[in-house]
Design a protein around this nucleic acid. Structure first.
Lengths: 340, 340
DNA sequence: TTTATTTACGCAATCGTTCCCGAAATATTC
DNA sequence: GAATATTTCGGGAACGATTGCGTAAATAAA
């Protein structure tokens, strides 16, 4: 099935002009007379001419589309980020091509190859939990592909990065728990290799230290795939609960881990917050409707998406190679509810 | 910033061959000797050659990308649909370009113009609540753009459609309420113009009729934007509750309406299900963690996405214009929990 | 040895736009 | 009125990959 479009050549023929003249008239060049311009424009409108973006891309050597790789679209945080990206990309006439890594380094690599072969002008990526080898990404970056990291960043590559203030968010959450009287605070962390995990762990430790509570290594359990599988949250929680000194509160490190933890506690009939308090990073707008209403640290996901898109566009549209990069850290919000 | 890629021309030059030979060697043409093939392939691999998809698209007159328009990405139902679309599109080497209408007919039209000018090979769309004028879409379809409707379909255009079994879903939900002893069942419907609203209303009516409960017009309230704004759910609920005969149960017609309704009832301290029972269409995986755990009708969103993508691809890749179209209806699931 | 056939490759056009040149046609200057 | 400047347009070459056609050389058949 073909979708026959009208081209500049058609217009030129019907109007007895050359394609160059038509092209210039459409682009409002100064070297075309008002009369011809009007004629061309009118006719173009009449026949519904739409420039072929693919031909333009080939000629201009840019595709006007940006690639986005996140671990999962159907995740409230990332879907909000995408929403933000979409909003500014759209404004600037860019397409957004989305791919999911599903927390798999292999799929991420495939997506990467795929998107770059699709001639994207730039990339926004939040690396998967599994990714340990950044060489391909690095190579792409060195070859000149504009890249912006969002949320899950890596140090090895110098470029713009957009993150939430994970340190402070975790600090605030932990401090809140301490102020509520909890002293044995378990932390359900995302994959230890992730930047967000490390920052959040630091924030957690800082709050403990400030309250003179010693940090215990066995109070930390990792969910290597960010809670994408319920089973890993379950295992982590069981590990935490079979310690000699059981935690009286849990601080969960990601959206899926937080809700996964809540699910676990419900299954085990653990009362919240009496038996065990719960606070975690989460971006669903349903947290206040949960049982109990969940205290959460909320990230400005939409704004983070917007920021990363505008940074990427500035990178793409800059004439000469950038050398100054910024890491934009956006503040999180602590919402205190019944679970703590 | 440019991202200089290696082209066929480079390879040809370095190997002392013509571009045609290189191209043919890469495509494993029979008219190239094994020796040259090997030489080209090895060299291509060494320099990391990736064919320029834009040039291919221009030549082949297809872009290998499909457009998707939904009302909102950050909506559990649609993000799952997109997930399904992505999974099959990716397998077939297609890009997915996503746009959001935000329930606005104007934005939808802009997205439509935008995506088609981006030379998409086909379109999957779930129309916005506001859309009343389908002429642009119709024109596109007549001009040969393959289109598949998902969830929110329109009768005016004959093509493949993928829907959930809305009639049966609504019927099951209403019947369930009746069996639980509720007789005054209010319905919080999505925009009345939408196919899904009509089908769900019919299912609701059928269940009432079967139980000899008369249908009352004032038991139905509409949320014209599908509950995208909390305020419209609030208004609708207030309207329902100020009737002379107040409902003892609510059947909500969409994801956002269902959770919006729950939110409203919490704010008003309405006990669920004692004062008012609640069941609704929803696809969030958090419903069992809500307070109370919500009885819902769940749609096979991921599978619907998959189905629409494969139908679209069959349309795109079919040699001659299709005339036989199917409407694939996928069954919903009734999950009974504490809210009813 | 001559003719037919196959093998292996290059030339050039094509997809739809853009843009560098050059060239009329018209306008301006001395 | 000749020389110069300006305006307005067309020719044609890109962009990168694909492909029909042509052809030289190598091989096979007569």
């Amino acid at each position: 099935m073909k979708f026959e479009a009208v081209t500049i050549k058609h217009i030129a023929q019907e109007l007895g002009l050359s394609t160059s003249t038509v092209s210039r008239a459409l682009r409002d060049s100064h070297e075309i007379s008002q009369a011809t311009k009007k004629m061309v424009l009118d006719h173009a409108k009449k026949v519904g001419f739409k420039p072929n973006r693919i031909a333009q891309s080939l000629k201009e050597r840019k595709s006007l589309s940006i690639g986005v790789i996140v671990c999962e679209i159907a995740n409230s945080f990332f879907s909000q980020v995408i929403n933000g990206i979409d909003s500014v990309a759209y404004e600037h006439g860019y397409n957004v091509i989305i791919a999911q890594s599903m927390e798999s380094a292999e799929r991420e690599l495939m997506n990467l190859e795929y998107l770059t072969s699709s001639s994207i002008d730039g990339l926004i990526i939040s690396v998967s939990t599994e990714t340990k080898n950044f060489s391909y990404l690095k190579k792409l970056h060195e070859r000149g592909l504009p890249i912006v990291f969002v949320d899950r960043v890596i140090d090895e590559i110098e470029t713009h990065k957009v993150i939430a203030d994970n340190y402070k968010g975790a600090y605030k959450a932990t401090k809140h728990l301490i102020e509520r009287g909890y002293k044995k605070i378990g932390i359900l962390s995302n994959n230890s290799g992730l930047s967000i995990s490390q920052e959040r762990l630091e924030g957690y430790k800082a709050a403990l230290k400030e309250a003179n509570i010693p940090f215990r290594e066995n109070m930390i359990a990792y969910c290597d795939h960010g809670g994408m599988l319920y089973s890993e949250v379950e295992t982590a929680m069981k590990m935490l609960l079979k310690q000699r000194v059981k935690p009286d509160a849990i601080f969960a490190g990601s959206d899926k881990i937080t809700t996964g933890c809540l699910r676990f506690m419900k299954h085990k009939n653990i009362r919240i917050p009496q038996d065990l308090a719960l606070i975690g990073f989460s971006n669903t707008d349903l947290t206040e409707l949960l049982n109990p209403p969940l205290s959460v640290i909320k990230q400005p996901a939409f704004e983070m998406g917007q920021a990363s898109a505008s940074l990427l566009l500035s990178l793409i549209e800059s004439k000469r190679p950038q050398t100054k990069f910024e890491t934009r850290s956006q503040s999180t919000e602590l919402l205190i509810r019944k679970s703590t």
